[in-house]
Design a protein around this nucleic acid. Structure first.
Length: 259
DNA sequence: ATGACCCTCAGCGAGGGA
């Protein structure tokens, strides 16, 4: 089976590309982030017409996540159990589902904005809640993975220029410690291969020729448990989808599983 | 060619992204 994660930066704006990509790539399960729409306006009908069921957690212009599956969709959980609120709001940043033999979480980790900002503390609390929420599934026998936009570059080589991120979020020790805590729960970083250049970046800023200059970051991650990792046949970043007019600023990360 | 931000909602800019 083929499973993927993709921050689409508005499913409304991306719908033509999303539908075309689902069909051309042969993806069975897609964890998507930044739907930027409401539950009601989510294009479940258009997706249904090409064979995908949708598990959606979305409330409006910000955030919004979903799991799309053409191999079954069950045991949906909307929202991160025990997750913190930001300014009194429980934001739609996580949704879980079981798709055939695999259970997945689609997550959109808070950005953090600036080190020291209330949003940064929120990001760390959110990640700790994620660790708690996935601990039991992580050690199970069923293939399980958390896929999504983690807004963390796991190592210095996961950004195009470490010096450009001095003092910035996404590269701090606290954020990387949060990823290490997930690994300590039994999850492993399924690192994709790049289709061009030497590093599998997944995000490139829209500004200042970020993509043509390959000024990217690897922040869209797949954290799988042992059975998931053992089933991985291949994984790559589909950078073709970052090209051209109407692209998201993130590319899909694709994982092929032998399950 | 991959090409110099883009998304949404509100409402004719602003907030957020990272």
């Amino acid at each position: 089976m083929r499973i993927a994660t993709w921050n689409v930066n508005s499913i409304t704006a991306r719908l033509p590309r999303l539908l075309a990509w689902l069909e051309s790539s042969g993806t069975d399960v897609l964890c998507l982030q930044e739907a930027k729409t409401t539950q009601e306006q989510f294009p479940a009908q258009a997706l249904s017409e090409i064979g995908y069921e949708s598990a959606v957690h979305a409330t409006g212009r910000w955030n919004g996540v979903a799991v799309l599956s053409r191999i079954g969709l069950a045991d949906v959980v909307r929202g991160l159990p025990g997750g913190p609120e930001y300014e009194g709001v429980a934001e739609p940043r996580a949704v879980a589902a079981t798709c055939g033999p695999v259970r997945v979480w689609s997550v959109y980790v808070p950005n953090g904005r600036e080190v020291g900002h209330a949003h940064y503390a929120y990001k760390l609390r959110w990640l700790d809640a994620l660790r708690g929420a996935v601990a039991r599934d992580a050690v199970g026998e069923r293939p399980f993975a958390v896929l999504g936009d983690f807004n963390i570059a796991p190592a210095d080589e996961d950004v195009w220029d470490r010096s450009a991120f001095e003092g910035a979020t996404h590269v701090t020790a606290d954020e990387r410690d949060a990823l290490a805590a997930l690994r300590e729960e039994g999850l492993q970083d399924v690192v994709p291969r790049p289709l061009k250049y030497d590093h599998p970046f997944t995000y490139w800023d829209y500004r200042q020729l970020g993509f043509p200059k390959n000024r990217g970051m690897r922040i869209d991650l797949v954290y799988g448990n042992g059975p998931f990792g053992a089933a991985v046949k291949d994984s790559y970043v589909d950078r073709e989808e970052r090209k051209g007019k109407g692209a998201s600023d993130h590319a899909p990360v694709v994982v092929d599983l032998d399950v």
